[in-house]
Simulated assay, not measured.
Amino acid sequence: MTDTPMTPDRLSQIQNRNLDEVTDGPWLVADGSGGRPVVYVETLRDGRTGARVLLSADGASEADVQFIASARQSVPELLAEVDRLRRALSEAAAWLVRAGYPVDWSAHEPPPDALREAVVDAVHADPTGTVHGGELTRDEVAAWLAVEVRAFAHPDGEPTP
């Protein structure tokens, strides 16, 4: 695992994998011939239940096979949660910008990076340009906003202890 945020391009690559073409789940695990684990789906034909093997996992551990089988349901659920959380963060940052909330980035306890980045994105994406005139790059917005917020929070130039 990494603490590095996933880039929008990487997230888009994962989201654009066509899950509609992947066999519907749930995917299940069982011992196949020779004790090799297999990933399968249950089938129903002519009123009779059967199974279709999707993957025979020679040399894979039970944990590996369980992980592969669970990914069919977990990946779409995780992608939906990433979308939900990113929308929520974006909405919160946009609300802060609209409300004129003074976020002091130089305070004793700075805001979380994700919130700071979301606020910069919200200011930069302001379609009216009322906040910064619509002439600044994202990096310029970040620098400008840091200066403006510091000046607003510390009008006498005194930083917060």
Rank of each mutant, 00 (worst) to 15 (best):
A99Q: 15
R10P: 04
G133F: 02
E42D: 13
R98W: 07
E21P: 00
V97K: 13
V41P: 08
D20L: 10
T128L: 10
T137H: 06
V141S: 02
A63V: 12
A92C: 05
A142Q: 07
P26E: 10
E91K: 11
V119D: 03
A146F: 02
L79N: 02
R10A: 15
A30I: 01
D113E: 13
V53M: 04
E21L: 14
R45H: 13
D20Q: 10
D64I: 01
W144V: 00
P111C: 05
Q13Y: 11
V75Q: 07
P102S: 01
E42W: 00
G47S: 09
R86S: 03
S106F: 01
Y40D: 04
W27R: 09
L136R: 15
A114S: 07
V41H: 03
V141W: 02
V149P: 00
A60I: 00
D113P: 08
H132M: 15
L78Y: 08
E140A: 07
L19R: 13
R10I: 11
D113M: 03
A92L: 14
Q66V: 10
A146Q: 09
N18L: 02
E109D: 06
S12Q: 14
L19V: 11
V147Y: 08
D58P: 06
A71Y: 13
A143I: 11
G35P: 02
Q13W: 11
V75P: 04
L79V: 01
A57S: 07
I68L: 15
R52K: 15
L11F: 09
L136P: 08
G35M: 03
V53L: 01
D104P: 01
A63N: 14
V41Q: 06
A122M: 06
P127C: 04
G134A: 13
T49V: 13
L136Q: 12
P37F: 07
P26N: 09
P102C: 11
R87G: 10
A88P: 00
Q13H: 14
S33P: 15
G50Q: 12
V39N: 03
A143N: 09
R48S: 15
L78E: 06
G35Q: 06
L54E: 11
G50A: 10
V39W: 05
D126H: 06
H132S: 12
I14N: 10
D31F: 08
S106N: 04
F67K: 10
V120T: 07
A30V: 00
V38K: 02
P26T: 12
S12I: 01
A92G: 10
G25V: 14
V97Y: 11
A30Q: 09
P26F: 11
G129F: 04
R84M: 00
P102I: 07
D20E: 14
